[in-house]
């Protein structure tokens, strides 16, 4: 069914989808003169896994930050199920069902795994100052604990429920973050590089979990810079480079796209880096280094000199 629908969508940037859940229009964001994001039109289809790929610095994470309210765009608007989301604060976006994870996992290390999960449950009476004092939140807490344990079992974290989240491995933290997002019953899950820094043995299991989100009826958008990883599971792939969407389409179709290969692999890709015995760059590599350094210096000259 999904395959059939996706075959009908034209593989071009900004293509219309039959049932978009998230629609973006002319969103831009600059940092000190550099356009980090500049997307004219982009739609995400409901119920699909959409992979958002592109080289480092393509603006994927910035786009995520903008869509989820963690950053403010210079221009642009976007709607979620027809409701405008622009200008909303991060927590308001999350409450409307658009939940994200982070590239560097934000498992709350000093809370137990179970508390991490229960924290995410929406609309808790005990979360309000006076509600907490009244002490009438016990039953709700019980229900949330039950739901949390179910999800932890599904993500094979139930044995760790009472450990501090700081004790988990990198892959387990990714799983915890995903499970935690599900506590909020989101409509759209946005995963920022869920596979980054994960033991390759765990990658397959993570991918299965991503698929299972879709099978539960959720829309999944995830950022990845390794194209091979997403080929199997994505229903649709959006390619970004230098802040723009340069291509979109089904993953098998994109591998042949010349623009994608160029942008993605970059002009430096096939260049072998050369160093002398002392580790100093030589030849082409030295020129490349000089170029990068002068860019750095120019950025310092231009920018507000000492801001990090």
């Amino acid at each position: 069914m999904r395959v059939e629908v996706s075959a009908e969508v034209p593989a071009q940037p900004g293509a219309r989808k039959p049932d978009p859940v998230l629609v973006i229009d002319s969103i831009t964001r600059s940092f000190g003169g550099v356009r980090a994001v500049d997307v004219a039109h982009l739609e995400f289809q409901r119920g699909w896994i959409t992979g958002l790929i592109g080289p480092n610095g393509a603006g994927k994470t910035t786009l995520f930050n903008l869509l989820t309210g963690f950053d403010r765009p210079d221009t642009g608007r976007w709607t979620f199920d027809g409701i405008p989301l622009s200008r909303l604060a991060p927590h308001q976006v999350a409450r409307r069902g658009l939940v994200r994870t982070f590239q560097l996992t934000k498992a709350l290390a000093k809370l137990t795994v179970l508390d991490n999960m229960r924290l995410a449950a929406p609309q808790q009476t005990g979360e309000r100052f006076f509600g907490a004092l009244l002490g009438t939140w016990g039953r709700q807490e019980q229900a949330n604990t039950g739901k949390a344990m179910e999800l932890l079992t599904r993500f094979q974290l139930d044995a760790k429920a009472h450990d501090l989240a700081g004790c988990l491995s990198g892959g387990q933290r990714k799983l915890l973050e995903m499970a935690r997002a599900l506590m909020m019953d989101p409509a759209v899950v946005m995963l920022d590089e869920p596979m980054a820094g994960v033991n390759p043995a765990l990658t397959e299991s993570l991918l299965q979990h991503v698929k299972s989100l879709r099978d539960d009826g959720m829309t999944v958008v995830f950022v990845e810079h390794d194209m091979d990883v997403i080929r199997d599971i994505s229903d649709w792939v959006v390619v970004m480079a230098q802040g723009r969407v340069i291509a979109e389409g089904r993953s098998e179709a994109l591998s042949a796209n010349r623009a994608v290969v160029d942008a993605y692999l970059g002009s430096h890709h096939d260049q072998v880096l050369e160093f002398d015995a002392d580790g100093n760059p030589v030849g082409q590599t030295a020129m490349l280094v000089a170029e990068i350094e002068s860019e750095l210096e120019a950025a310092i000259e231009r920018g507000q000199d000492l801001s990090a």
Binding site: E293, L296, E297, A299, I300, G303, D305, L306, S307, A308
Partner: peptide
Amino acid sequence: LLQRTRIGKAMRAVADNRDLAASS
């Protein structure tokens, strides 16, 4: 000092981005 000398430029570079400065 900040504008012209090596150490001054290095100071600005470190303030600008510590990791980048260290890696360069």
